[in-house]
Design a protein around this nucleic acid. Structure first.
Lengths: 192, 192
DNA sequence: CAGAACCTACTTATATGCAGGTAGACATGT
DNA sequence: ACATGTCTACCTGCATATAAGTAGGTTCTG
């Protein structure tokens, strides 16, 4: 985990890409090794089993997310700025060809997935939901947002709308995602 | 297609189930044949290739959907009643353990899927979008709904919110889906 | 030289699909 | 009536590809 040489980073990079494009069952070590010009066994060297790879991926995503947010908060980012970061990430990943967010891609076929993958995905998902809940609460108190339903429910709404929008936009194009983000904002009473 | 003996129906039944729970790459003929107590080869008898099975599934879904809607319209169903049928279907499928709608489950890994599957999924998706667009337009004209953004955009919103909600609710539970449906309704200016 | 990085070569399991066979239903013609 | 042929549904058995993972060797590097 703390061992982050270039190859390991590249493995995680492409694994993330394939996971978000194709889901857990839609890619293999071969897809990754071919991209890197190495052999399957080399990936097994870093991640003995596929579930180790994907679990590590999700865990890293969670920590990475936490770090990014911490930076924004530290530099005095408002609730809107924090949320905008999340939206920008979605747009950026769309532009990179990733059709769905990591937690979303690991919901398909959830029951049949290895235990550790499921656990890490639940952690990631709850992390995001908790964070959005907090941002919404803060933003509401500070008058940056304006909505009437419970904060927790609205946080779920934000996440699920974005998930669905990413799925649909991978077929319908970028403007579908952009429009969904606008719609989320207006649901928050956020006009810019 | 028109050949609908019991075995064929069962094959489609379980194929639909697995597709909606696990996605295209998440199930095999074996999963289905085991459920039916028959052999893989028997499924190949009806559907020589997996892509034939899934394409047939999507096509059947589209026709089935068209028929159901036609019945409602024929019996004088209002725009709200038509849309409610769609919501009920989502809830019903949730209760059957299906985590995502058929078109959604065939978006994951879309690029790598067989051509005919992609085509049928686009047809199904556009069918649904066109239908919802029409229902929203009619409902708007008749004062059953009230919203200000373009009808086409709002139709996409409805679909994507429901897609995302179904994904998330498969982890977070039924109330997440129920709440999403309420939220969609209130976005349509539909208070009941 | 110790360990990390990467390799070859293998095993095992599973998915997909084809070839061809059998058993029973049904149909027909004489 | 019955012998014949044909069709459907399902089967056994096989071929091929790929995935996932193991064992153990090599090479490079501090």
């Amino acid at each position: 985990m703390t061992d982050m040489n270039p190859t390991n980073q590249q493995i995680l990079h492409y694994a993330r890409h394939f996971l978000q494009c194709r889901g857990y069952n839609g890619f293999s070590y071969k897809d990754i090794s071919q991209k890197l010009g190495i052999k399957n066994a080399s990936i097994h060297h870093y991640y003995p089993k596929k579930e180790d790879l994907v679990a590590a991926l999700l865990e890293e995503g969670r920590k990475n997310f936490a770090t990014s947010i911490a930076q924004i908060v530290e530099s005095g980012g408002s609730a809107r700025e924090q949320l905008q970061y999340y939206f920008n990430r979605a747009l950026q990943e769309f532009d990179e060809g990733k059709c769905i967010c990591p937690p979303g891609s690991v919901i398909i076929g959830f029951e049949e997935l290895p235990e550790e993958v499921k656990n890490q995905n639940l952690l990631l998902l709850d992390h995001i939901l908790d964070w959005i809940t907090n941002v919404l609460r803060t933003g509401l108190e500070k008058g940056e947002f304006n909505f009437s339903d419970p904060v927790e429910a609205h946080a779920e709404e934000v996440v699920e709308t974005l998930m669905g929008a990413r799925l649909l936009s991978s077929i319908k194009g970028r403007k579908t995602l952009v429009r969904a983000i606008s719609s989320i904002k207006s649901g928050l009473g956020w006009k810019d």
